[in-house]
């Protein structure tokens, strides 16, 4: 669908954006037709927007000679996208955009049979940092205030977030375990509702990306009380991390990156690794990271496999502790 849409529009609007392919490196593999980039969210979802931005940047930076078309395979968490990639076994012109959900989803969903180890990881690109935010007029100025209040009135405070296997809830679970405090997690499918419920005072806290929080803080609607990262965030130099506030919990990463279907030839993997090695050095990518306040999470090869393995182990533990049904 997307392919010809592009063609039509390119022709009608006369805006020919396709790269000129001046990166004909010595690599044995070179794509000969547009690349299909599979994401697990519908148009407008986090992964969809990320993939479209990457596709656009790669064209601008002329890192690939072919266009990249985003294909939305939403459903069952990430199950539909992942099994679509398995169906595309050996396909040299297909890649997928993974997130942490691709690791946790098969752990809790019986029907999601494809594991990330069944696919071919290529690179991890970013780590999305997060902060713990409350409403601007809330009495909680530090994480300690919030935890103390939650201990005084167990299950009275509320946190808004997405799916229960998502990072938002896992963050709550690890903090609850470390501190003994208890509060309630309320799921909202859309990001808009999560923020609206915090600003409307229906919930007391939420986990949010720093870029998103920035605007609400500037407008005086929100306050950030902890950085959910290893080090303080450059954009919030005055906000201490959880560890600095005496809560020693593992940082739950939200990783984004690229993988390929199972069984692709070695030279295709080498090709993509080369492409992304050049890409992450480009000025456009650096600017994108800064704009979105993402952490550069470039990782490939055995290190990436190790990351996935460790993440799966950690997530399984966290989910089990929380009493979620872990199926594999």
């Amino acid at each position: 669908m997307k392919r010809s849409w592009y063609c039509l529009l390119l022709i009608t609007s006369g805006l020919v954006l396709s790269g000129t392919g001046d990166f004909a490196h010595a690599a044995a593999f070179e794509p000969t037709k547009p690349i299909e980039a599979v994401v697990h969210t519908g148009p407008g979802g986090g992964s969809d927007i990320f993939a479209r931005a990457i596709a656009e940047l790669m064209q601008k930076e002329k890192t690939i000679s072919q266009r990249m078309q985003v294909v939305n395979k939403s459903g069952g968490g990430s199950a539909v996208a992942m099994s679509y990639l398995v169906e595309k076994k050996g396909d040299t012109h297909t890649i997928g955009f993974f997130t942490g959900v691709w690791v946790t989803n098969p752990l809790t969903t019986a029907a999601a049979k494809v594991m990330i180890s069944d696919l071919t990881p290529i690179v991890r690109l970013v780590l999305e940092p997060a902060v713990f935010a409350v409403k601007a007029d809330s009495p909680y100025k530090t994480m300690k205030d919030f935890i103390d209040a939650a201990k005084r009135n167990p299950n009275q405070l509320k946190q808004s977030g997405g799916s229960i296997t998502g990072r938002d809830n896992l963050v709550r679970l690890v903090i609850e375990k470390a501190t003994g405090a208890k509060w309630v997690f309320v799921s909202f499918p859309s990001g808009g509702e999560r923020i609206a419920n915090l600003l409307g005072g229906h919930v007391d806290a939420m986990v949010i990306e720093p870029q998103e929080a920035g605007e609400h803080i500037k407008a005086g609607n929100m306050r950030v009380i902890a950085a959910l990262t290893d080090k303080r965030l450059p954009s919030f130099p005055n906000v201490p991390t959880l560890k600095e506030q005496g809560i020693d919990v593992p940082v739950i990463p939200q990783a984004r990156g690229i993988l390929a279907p199972p069984g692709v030839p070695k030279e295709v993997i080498l090709y993509w690794e080369g492409v992304f090695e050049r890409f992450v050095k480009s000025a456009g990518w650096k600017q994108y990271l800064e704009q979105n306040q993402f952490e550069d999470g470039y990782l490939k090869g055995p290190a990436l496999n190790k990351f996935f393995d460790e993440l799966a182990v950690k997530m399984r533990e966290v989910l089990k502790e929380a009493g979620a049904k872990v199926v594999r």
Partner: peptide, 19 residues
Amino acid sequence: TDLFTAESRFTFGHMELLD
């Protein structure tokens, strides 16, 4: 798939129905 508990309901074993 149930949003709150991630349990699948009435999907008759079809992955396509998870969503």
